[in-house]
Design a protein around this nucleic acid. Structure first.
Lengths: 131, 131
DNA sequence: CCGGATCCTTGTCGATACTG
DNA sequence: CAGTATCGACAAGGATCCGG
């Protein structure tokens, strides 16, 4: 249950939590407004359902996200929302995005398609994390 | 040989390169001045030799680091140095470190020990990446 | 001794099928 | 719709071995 850290280095410890192949992408989706399981699964990276399920579980355990159960008879069955600790990862994602557009543009087509669906939040200023 | 990206998202693409469990830690070591194979292996995280070898190979292939062969009869047998693209990951590591010290201090002893050996480079301003 | 390479075991990832 | 179960593929970890 307890997650042993590799060392006392804050970088290593942070990567012990979100340093895998998918966690930061799930957090990105949550920052982009995706709340439900299906919405996150619809992201272009096509995460497998078991991985998404597991990562959400881990994020909740780590205190980076919380589950939001439905409001009684509502049609949509609530989803997940970032906690303040999870929202504080925004600068990390911003720097990663900056690095990606600066150094990966010549290897891949063009990120405009994604940037169009990512207005201001990930590449501009650090506004309020979620509405 | 070509590394297929999961999507056009610059975040996802960046994580396709350095988003595994060890790559960013190796880059951290290179930023901290570690050059030789053994120096990096001596980091407190105790990376296995095969993993370190593989990650260095990948970083070189991705253009984030270059091998530096020895200066002829010198005693030290050259090591690895970050390229400008690799050094540009410094802000990413800085933000990760900031998040780690801000949100992980109550779960682990104290990062002072590491911070003492990490003067200014990873937590303060973005100076010259390597001397 | 240093810088890896090579086994081999374990764990995690990922696709698909399936269930409440 | 929101996950869970299953199982093969692959990556990580540990130990050892080898060339210089």
């Amino acid at each position: 249950m307890d997650r042993p850290f590799r060392s006392d280095c804050p970088i290593a410890s942070a990567l012990d939590i979100v340093g895998d192949r998918w966690s930061l992408l799930v957090i990105r989706n949550l920052m982009l407004g995706a709340r439900s399981f299906r919405q996150m699964q619809a992201a272009p990276e096509r995460i497998a359902t078991n991985i998404l399920s597991d990562r959400l579980k881990r994020l909740v355990e780590a205190g980076l996200a919380v589950e939001q159960r439905a409001i009684a008879g509502s049609g949509s069955r609530g989803g997940y929302v970032l906690t303040p600790a999870g929202a504080d990862l925004l600068p990390v994602l911003q720097e990663i995005a900056k690095w990606g557009v600066a150094h990966l543009t010549d290897r891949r087509p063009i990120p405009e398609a994604f940037l169009a669906t990512t207005p201001a939040l990930l590449l501009n200023s650090a506004d309020k994390p979620l509405s």
